[in-house]
Amino acid sequence: MTTATKPPTPSPHVPVGLDWQLAIAQELIARGVSVAAYVPDSRLNGVLAALGERDIRLRNLAREEECVAYAAGQRIAEARPVVLMQSSGLGNALNALGSLAVPYRLGIPLIISMRGTLGEKNPSQVPMGRATTAWLGALGIQSFSLRQASEVGPVISGVLDLAFDAGETAAVLLEPELGGGRA
């Protein structure tokens, strides 16, 4: 398992104190990820900017469901995509996950920025955030919480192993403790 042991190289696009965003990008690049399909989220900006700086293809698609299906098309050709979204968009992706990614065993890595959990101030975000791990679990998709920058290497790398080697769609949850959320 590859881990990011070196401190991340500074990026002009990643805010001070949010080096975890850069570390995620560097781990994805080290493991050969070639394209990121995503729906925007403020906490993903630094990850995506760092990927873009290294010429990783960025695909801002209209819906989270599209991101999963796009990644399925990449995986059936044995390419290495990653899907990034906010937890509030997971509901939009459930059909593509449960009826495509899982039964076809295409092994798609998901990076989900959590809303609706610790510190959430928007009541409308809470139900989907509270249900995120349960939704994933009900489909047999394992999820792993990332709370500290020091865990980026093993967690990201481990989820990529599950996806690309074991053929299991699996998720990293970017928890509020990492920082970068709404004040």
Binding site: Q74, N95, A96, S99, L100
Partner: peptide, 22 residues
Amino acid sequence: HFYFGAAMGSALAGALGLAEAV
């Protein structure tokens, strides 16, 4: 070929991903 047996509404995005991969 890439046959969809479910996931209605996802096939065009799947085709986009496949087209860019090959």
